[in-house]
């Protein structure tokens, strides 16, 4: 036997797959948004609202869950393209699984959401090839989550604080939450919203349009 020195991170092959997928999506003018949060934070409700509010943008959704197709059916009922991805027990989506799911979607979609498995830990550790990492934290979950799950907040480009219509029922301190998140990730953009009442949605939608425009700048897809 001979000794081979590798010094490679275990996720090296995933990182390569992710880079290839990212390049492919940029060239076709699709912004892939990796949506990460705990289970029950309102991912599907937020996406449903975005689909209704952005009728001029061609939107697709890839729903990743361990089982069932309830979320994909909800999205399809709104007229957007949706597929359900089963992770066969895996707690996260990796780049290879994401690339396979992307293959099943219409290439002319502009905004493609990957609804990752509801989990604040593992999805943060795997690059999916997304152009934008969006994290959701709902008011009922509490403002202490940045302290408990720092990596997810560090890896996200934007944080959407959902269910702000319930702020008066919980002891969620938005200011304290923002302070904790900014300490972990000074560059992160934060959007408090209620997908139910529509409060704060305009700012989030403007941000998504801005990111989409930045992606297609300098390419033929603009």
């Amino acid at each position: 036997m001979r000794l081979i020195t590798l010094n490679a991170t275990v996720t090296a092959s995933n990182d390569r797959d992710a880079a290839a997928l990212r390049e492919k999506l940029v060239s076709r003018g699709t912004l892939l948004v990796n949506v990460m949060s705990a289970a029950g934070s309102g991912k599907t409700t937020l996406l449903s609202r975005l689909i209704r509010d952005l009728p001029d943008v061609k939107i697709g959704v890839m729903e990743a869950d361990i089982a069932s197709d309830v979320d994909a059916k909800t999205i399809e009922a709104l007229g957007a393209a949706a597929i359900q991805v089963h992770t066969s027990g895996m707690c996260h989506m990796d780049a290879g699984m994401t690339a396979a799911a992307v293959e099943a979607m219409d290439p002319s979609l502009r905004l493609l959401f990957l609804e990752n498995v509801g989990n604040l830990i593992c999805p943060a550790e795997y690059d999916t090839g997304a152009g934008l990492n969006l994290m959701l934290l709902s008011v009922p979950e509490g403002d202490d989550k940045p302290l408990k799950y720092p990596l997810m907040f560090q890896k996200s480009d934007a944080l959407v604080v959902t269910k702000t219509d319930t702020l008066s029922y919980f002891t969620f301190d938005l200011e304290k939450c923002v302070e904790r998140v900014k300490k972990l990730n000074p560059a992160i953009r934060i959007f408090p919203v209620s997908a139910k009442t529509g409060e704060g949605m305009a700012a989030l939608e403007a941000y998504l349009r801005e990111r989409l425009a930045a992606l297609t700048e300098g390419t033929d897809h603009a």
Partner: peptide, 20 residues
């Protein structure tokens, strides 16, 4: 101070293998 960051300890690296 809270102005701290991790230098090492978050790795999962394949250092070397023996093979033929």
């Amino acid at each position: 101070s809270g102005e701290t960051w991790l230098l090492q300890g978050n790795e999962c690296v394949i250092k070397e293998i023996e093979a033929e």
